[in-house]
């Protein structure tokens, strides 16, 4: 079931579209914002709320790789592996994160603090290499800077 808060936020989106179902992506974002990820039950709840079938909602949800259909850690680190970051030290950053967190790409730390995911571009090539943690972008990275940054996320 969707919380009252979630329902309110999704309803606010209805105004932007001629049809309720058009708010599907926003609804997924709302649920993910509140719960960290979108479970099967979350899919069904959204489907009910938007008069869609669960298949239709999941079709949208699974298309977007930033809609998480499996649980993630409290913080999600997106590491850019695209060309600019790759030539400016992505490998080093990646290895450092692996070592610090004890996980590989697509994994979550045992304490559920971080999930590490690869990302094709974060739109900050002029300051490569970059990573993004939750909604925060970090650029011109070095392994040392990373240690400091991680401290900010409990």
């Amino acid at each position: 079931m969707l919380s009252e808060q979630e329902q309110r936020e999704i309803k606010a989106e209805f105004a932007h579209y001629p049809q309720k179902r058009a708010a599907c992506i926003e609804a997924l974002k709302v649920v993910q914002k509140h719960r960290g990820w979108v479970s099967d039950d979350g899919i069904k709840a959204i489907a009910d709320f938007l008069d869609m079938s669960p298949e239709e909602v999941d079709n949208v949800a699974t298309f977007y790789n930033l809609v998480f259909r499996k649980p993630v850690g409290r913080h999600v680190i997106l590491i850019c592996d695209s060309i600019s970051c790759w030539v400016t030290g992505y490998e080093q950053i990646k290895e450092h994160l692996f070592e610090r967190l004890g996980i590989a790409l697509g994994e979550t730390t045992k304490d559920n603090r971080f999930t590490l995911l690869p990302m094709a571009c974060l739109g900050a090539c002029d300051h490569a290499p970059v990573i993004m943690i939750d909604d925060d972008l970090y650029h011109d990275l070095t392994p040392e800077k990373i240690d400091q940054i991680l401290e900010n996320y409990e």
């Binding site: 869609m52 079938s53 298949e55 239709e56 079709n59 699974t62 298309f63």
Partner: peptide
């Protein structure tokens, strides 16, 4: 029908 769909990408 509405219970068959394409998933992922």
């Amino acid at each position: 029908g509405d219970d068959l769909d394409a998933f992922a990408a």
